[in-house]
Nucleic acid binder design. Structure first.
Lengths: 270, 270
DNA sequence: AAACATAGTTCCATATAATGGAACTTCCAT
DNA sequence: ATGGAAGTTCCATTATATGGAACTATGTTT
C-alpha cells in the first residue's frame, strides 16, 4: 500500500504518512478549480474509496474543504486565513516592499516579487501598474521558472549542480512561440544571464507580456528570489526594458543587502 | 492521550486524528507571526516532544512550513499557493466582483466582501479606496463578527437560535470605546439591524474607521456573507454612511440574486 | 577546560488509528 | 418497479503514530 503512483494524471503521495495523503487530497480539490465530486477525487488520488472518504471528512471538519449540498467538495476559508497570516507576517516581503514601491515609481509599470520553490516561482508581492485590469493580487500564484523573468533570474543565482538538478525536473510546456523547449536552451540563456546580471522575459510565458528581472539570493537563509518590472509589449519594447535593467538590479541589490542586515546571519555565521 | 487541553494559551485539537494534530501545529506556527522554535511549539501544543517533532518534519517535508538555519519554523510558500488557487477559483467572489467595483465607483470609498465563519468574518475581496495607504490586500484576514459592519450584517441574517449559539461563543474584546461588551448588547443591535436591513460600524473595531454594510444570505448554499463601504471618520460621517445604506443594500441584493441564478438551487431544491 | 544547562533529535516497544475490501444505503433514470 | 451509479458505513487486519527515555549538540557559567 501507499505506493507512489506515477501515472501522469495522478498526484504523487510523499512519504509523510497520513498528512501526505490528506494534502494530496486537498491539492487535488484545490487544483481542479471547480467543485469535485467524491468519485472524481477517488480517481485523481488512486486510493481506496473508504480511505479517501475518511480523509475528506477530516479535511471538511478542519475547515480546509467545504462540502456543498450537492455533496461536491470545494476549498474552505481556512486556507485563506492561514495564507493571510503567513503573508502578512513574512519578513522578506515586508523588507522588500518599499523597494518595490520605489521601482514602481521609477518605471510606472507593474512590479513583482517572487520566490523560487523547486521548478516554480511563487509570487509573494506585487505593485500594480494601475488599478485598471483586474483589481487584485496574483499573490500566491505559481508560474514555471523557465519562462518567467524572475524565474530565470532566480535560477541564475544557483550553483551549477543545483541548477542542473532542478532543470532536469522541468517539463517544458510551450506557452508561446518564444518559450524555451529544452533544458539545454534554458541553461544556455542562464549562462548569459549570469554574465549580464539580469534576465528578460520576451513573451515567453504570455504573448504580449515582457519583463526584465534581477536575482535576489541569500544563501544563508536558503532564499532564492527575484524582482521584475513587467509591461505589455506594445508599450514596453526591449530597448525600454534594457534601460530599466540597471534600476531593477539596483533594487534587487538593496533588498538583498537589507535582508542580510535585518535578518542577520544564518547558523554558524555561514 | 490526545486529551483536549482547555488551558487558555493552548490550541485545541479536534477529533480529526493525525490531521487535526498536524493542523494544530501549523496553526500554532502561523498564528505566532514570528519564527517559532521547537520548544515554543511544544509548549503551545501541549503534546509530547517526540510527537511534535515528527509532525514538524512532515509539515516541512510537505512545504507547509520551512525551517531556517537557526532551526526555527516559519510558514511555507505552499500555503500561499494553495490559497491563491482557492481564491481565484472561488465562484462567489467572482460573481460579486463587478458589483463591488460598481459600489466603489458610486461611493469612492473602500469596498469589502466578507464571509461569516463561526464567530469571525473572513474577507474574501476588497476594492481599495486609492492605492495610497498600503498596496495590498487584507484578503484572508479574519476579524471578529461582533464589531465589524459585515459581521453584524451577516449575523442578522441568521435564524435566532443559530445567532444565539454563535453569540454565546464570542469573547467580547473591547477594541475601542464603542465596541460591544456583551452578547446582550450585540443581540439588541442585531434586532435593529434586521429591521433596517443594514449595519453600521461606528468605530467599534478600529478608532476612526466607520462603515455601512448589508447582508448576503444564501441558505441553500450555507453562505452567510456581507458587503460594506468603509471610510475614515473624518471624511465619512454617519449621515454620509446612512445615505449610502441603500446602494449597499442594493448591491447585496443583486449579488444574492445573481449567485442564486448562477449557482443554481442546492440539493433537493431546498 | 570542565561542568552544567538548555535545546533539539533519535529510538523503539506499545497502543492507537488508518486501512481497504465489502456490504449497505441513497438517489436517479428508465 | 428495476437497474445502476454514487456515496457512505462497517470492521477485522495491519501499518502507523505515539511518547517516554536515552542521546547528541550547542551554549553558558565557574
Amino acid at each position: 500500500m501507499n505506493e507512489i503512483k506515477t501515472t501522469d494524471a495522478e498526484i504523487e503521495i510523499a512519504g509523510t504518512g497520513t498528512l501526505g495523503k490528506a494534502m494530496a487530497v486537498l491539492e487535488a480539490v484545490v487544483t481542479a478549480g471547480s467543485p469535485q465530486r467524491f468519485t472524481d477525487i477517488v480517481q485523481s488520488i488512486g486510493q481506496p474509496r473508504g480511505t479517501v472518504h475518511r480523509l475528506l471528512s477530516h479535511l471538511v471538519e478542519e475547515g480546509l474543504l467545504v462540502q456543498g449540498r450537492d455533496l461536491s467538495y470545494e476549498p474552505g476559508l481556512r486556507l485563506l486565513k492561514l495564507a493571510y497570516r503567513s503573508w502578512s507576517g513574512n519578513r522578506f516581503r515586508d523588507i522588500a516592499e518599499p523597494h518595490l514601491l520605489r521601482l514602481h515609481e521609477l518605471t510606472g509599470e507593474t512590479v513583482h516579487l517572487g520566490v523560487l520553490r523547486e521548478t516554480e516561482i511563487i509570487y509573494v508581492d506585487k505593485v500594480e501598474s494601475r488599478q485598471t485590469v483586474r483589481m487584485s493580487s496574483q499573490i500566491g500564484k505559481a508560474s514555471p521558472a523557465y519562462c518567467t523573468g524572475i524565474g530565470k533570474a532566480a535560477l541564475s543565482s544557483l550553483p551549477q549542480p543545483e541548477l542542473e538538478r532542478i532543470a532536469a525536473r522541468m517539463r517544458f510546456h510551450p506557452f508561446t512561440a518564444h518559450t524555451h523547449r529544452s533544458a539545454a536552451a534554458l541553461l544556455a540563456e542562464i549562462d548569459e544571464i549570469r554574465r549580464e546580471g539580469h534576465a528578460f522575459d520576451r513573451e515567453e510565458h504570455e504573448a504580449e507580456i515582457c519583463c526584465v528581472a534581477a536575482p535576489i539570493a541569500i544563501p544563508e537563509h536558503d532564499l532564492v528570489a527575484g524582482v521584475s518590472v513587467t509591461g505589455p509589449a506594445y508599450r514596453v519594447n526591449m530597448a525600454q526594458l534594457a534601460a530599466w535593467a540597471e534600476v531593477v538590479r539596483g533594487a534587487a541589490g538593496k533588498i538583498e543587502e537589507e535582508v542580510r542586515m535585518r535578518l542577520g546571519p544564518g547558523r554558524n555565521g555561514r
